[in-house]
Design a protein around this nucleic acid. Sequence first.
DNA 1: CGCCTATTTGATCTGATTCAAACAATGTGG
DNA 2: CCACATTGTTTGAATCAGATCAAATAGGCG
Lengths: 255, 255
Amino acid sequence: MTYLPTHKLELVCALTDAERAAVHAACAHETSIPTGSDMARDGDRPGFSTVLLEGWACRYKIAGNGKRQIMCFHLPGDWVDIHSYFIRTMDHSVRAVTDCRVAQIPHLRVRQLLGEHPRLAQLIWHQTMLDSSVFREWVLNLGARRADQRLAHLLCEVRTRLNELGMINGEAFELPLNQVDLADCIGVSTVHLNRVLQLLRKRGLVSIGRRTVTITDWQGLVSAADFDASYLHLEDGPFTCELYGLGEATTAVGG
Amino acid sequence: MTYLPTHKLELVCALTDAERAAVHAACAHETSIPTGSDMARDGDRPGFSTVLLEGWACRYKIAGNGKRQIMCFHLPGDWVDIHSYFIRTMDHSVRAVTDCRVAQIPHLRVRQLLGEHPRLAQLIWHQTMLDSSVFREWVLNLGARRADQRLAHLLCEVRTRLNELGMINGEAFELPLNQVDLADCIGVSTVHLNRVLQLLRKRGLVSIGRRTVTITDWQGLVSAADFDASYLHLEDGPFTCELYGLGEATTAVGG
DNA sequence: CGCCTATTTGATCTGATTCAAACAATGTGG
DNA sequence: CCACATTGTTTGAATCAGATCAAATAGGCG
């Protein structure tokens, strides 16, 4: 199933027909990115921003010692690198975790879109603020929790976000990551990751098989992870419009 | 010395008189925040955004196990929590590390400012993207480096940012943090922090005294830290204007 | 001086790494 | 269908980074 690039924006505030049309027009040019390849690489100066339409992507960096650190995942509907519009040189890489469909919007087009639709600009800005919020939680996760908690936390975050997109069946979901990837998320060796994974299994919290995760004790996992979904700001949505003064009008904000 | 709230914006792109005046007007209401007190607390719903005029602030979160994780520092000129305009409920706290002077801009006023000055909106958005970039580097730092490297990296980042503001004398600068604070930045116990600190001293890289840091071997510290300043995007500045099409005009972007 | 806070030290224990190898699952070509 | 390579997961043992607990020392400061 394909998630339109307006999907996440509309969770925060309903778009006008004109706004929706403008986004769709900007996203007209679709491309496929195969599993494991980079959509953008550290040091690149891409001339476009990417919207993920289908598949999983992740952002990562490589440290001088060769260790890879994954810093977040992107799911269908995410504006993966709108930041490249503002900061020309990539300071990290973005990789397709699965086969992906993306829309590449030339920066000139982005500029036009944001300029002509101030409400859209604010909604996309809002998205980038949510990304920041996730980064902060990852900083907390890496800095203040044990490896088993970190892994549990990651699983909680992924489940919650997939659930928001309706990509969960019962308590099971597809996780297109191997143990090397998971280890690179929570900052441990693969050997240790394997051990904490077994710990979570032994405690009856999750059951992880070939690319499939089943959460057998959600409450247990949440408390093991010290997980509090409020940093994802899922339920803030409906209110924010009102705050912005972003009613249904097509007119610019403020003034 | 006081850094005007336009200082950082102008590093990216010169403002028009009208824009500068609008920012100054919005920042008219100044407040003092004493050392150690919180400007905003996790769970709060502040009705204003804060611009730091003088002093140091930090953002932090407390994990369920009681551990505090600091996630970034803010220096004079930073728009500390513009994100509270978009995301009403704070998902972390902001603390005054030293006595601070701040301007509190009511969200309604923020809305007005961003609506009436699209160029300003983009420049402030740009700032928030730089914040994200720092968060990502901290994720890498915590996930992929040893404690001694993390500490060295923190010192490199702080020095570089202070240098940008002209707050360095020679190779010495004032660091208003005690070892507990430093430990909470790099995610280790205070005891261990003290030990890695001694390590850096013993290696002749830094000399840290009462709130003062002197970097005795900058190149050594940089390489020990695996520090690459490109994530701070200091030299990207002049170019970006051109990219935005944000000349000197006061007219809205795009169109 | 005596009090308070911040830094330093020592000893012990645990979480996590490393190296090395075994094992399981999948895919490929003969 | 088997032999084989390939990739991903699991196990063991030795070692190291970092936590914890407890106490000592060093600076400010009233």
